[in-house]
Nucleic acid binder design. Structure first.
Lengths: 220, 220
DNA sequence: CCAGGATGTAGTCATTGACAACAATGTAGC
DNA sequence: GCTACATTGTTGTCAATGACTACATCCTGG
């Protein structure tokens, strides 16, 4: 190999790979461009040639993360089986990814929420939602689910599974196995969609207080 | 006022209050102990007397955040109304808090997930779950909901609402109002709990592949 | 063969978190 | 009153970091 030549050759890929390892080991806070460079045996400024700044690297990590996650979700959605089992399988794929790469998942979300995230990032972050919508629409057409606002139902499912994934990633479920939580969640959601939503009475409306107690609390 | 005396007097409270503002303005990354000190007109090392390091300050922020959030959730759970509307109100309280303090919420969770989080932090982070469980058990006893694993159902509801809160905080719901999502989520969950879960068939089991494509992807 | 872009290097700067030594303040016990 | 002492804040310092600039090396195409 000519790996010791002046040019690393695949520095960008190596940086991403090493960064992926690093964040899961030491968290995002522990990620240092200079340390990354040292790990790979290049100068401290070399990463700058591939990523304008640290955020740019995180953006790239997030993008890769979404690609990998979406691939699994889409793969799960295309597996054989009835609607319900495919639904569960999609959920498992999502949760599984979250558990395997908790820190990456956090980076993915915080990056997507960043005000100046790329359009690609914003879009790819919602593929999961699209998959859920397609499956629900299909099951609804087949008469398996009560008719309803397909778009909104998909969003609710996505949101719920997202919550399960995040909490699973955080290892926040003492005593409850992640798999059984996933099953319980999909079961409850599916049961709700079979039954349909009785009355769409308007919400009492969140109070939307200015909520100053958070800062005022420190005065007494 | 003797505010210009040698001792600030309430530096700890002032630091927390200013930090609370700062993170919502500039994110956690933008939080600097030295900048905080400058904002408050104290020396750069003064914060160190109250918080051993930056993480200690974040821990305190998270603790305060949970306290404020739990107070609202508990308040909502104690409001008058039938079980269902109280359920919706609890959800609204949670989501409302998330929308008002998105960055703080992220800090709260990442801090709680930190391996050496205090016991108090871990415990207080699950008060929301306790409230949900109490309400569901009550409604179930009243015969309003189908009987089932009360503990697990509460967890599922908590997880789902958490997901809604997180995504709402991230402003991730283009086109969908947060309030309507909250209503739709609580509706679906409630409908599912009324109907009950038909068959508790075992999950197909997540595949749990070693998932190396995330790093291998960079080789082709 | 050489012109120029891509990639990596060396050097530098301000900022940051953390620490240590010291000073001012308040307080408890005598 | 007065002195020991813990608390709280200050100044000084250090290594590490992200970001920038100028420069070196390599590769490719004309």
């Amino acid at each position: 190999m000519t790996d010791q030549s002046y040019h690393h050759g695949k520095l960008r890929e190596a940086l991403l790979a090493r960064a992926t390892e690093s964040i899961e080991e030491a968290g995002v806070e522990g990620l240092s461009l200079r340390q990354l460079a040292r790990d790979l045996g290049v100068s401290h400024a070399a990463p700058g040639k591939h990523f304008r700044d640290k955020q740019a690297l995180l953006d790239a990590l997030a993008l890769d993360g979404f690609r990998a996650m979406n691939a699994r979700i889409i793969g799960a959605s295309e597996a054989a089986g009835d609607h319900r089992s495919r639904f569960v399988r999609i959920a498992s794929a999502y949760v599984d990814f979250a558990v395997s790469h908790p820190v990456l998942l956090a980076v993915m979300h915080s990056t997507k929420h960043h005000p100046d995230a790329s359009d690609e990032l914003r879009s790819i972050g919602e593929d999961g939602l699209r998959v859920a919508r397609a499956l629900i629409a299909e099951a609804m057409d087949a008469g398996e689910l009560a008719s309803g606002d397909c778009e909104m139902l998909a969003l609710v499912c996505f949101v719920s599974l997202h919550g399960a994934a995040v909490l699973a990633a955080g290892n926040l479920l003492d005593g409850t196995s992640i798999d059984s939580l996933t099953v319980a969640t999909t079961d409850l959601l599916w049961a709700g969609m079979i039954a349909g939503i009785p009355a769409t009475q308007e919400a009492p409306g969140a109070v939307h207080e200015p909520l100053r107690e958070l800062t005022r609390r420190h005065e007494s």
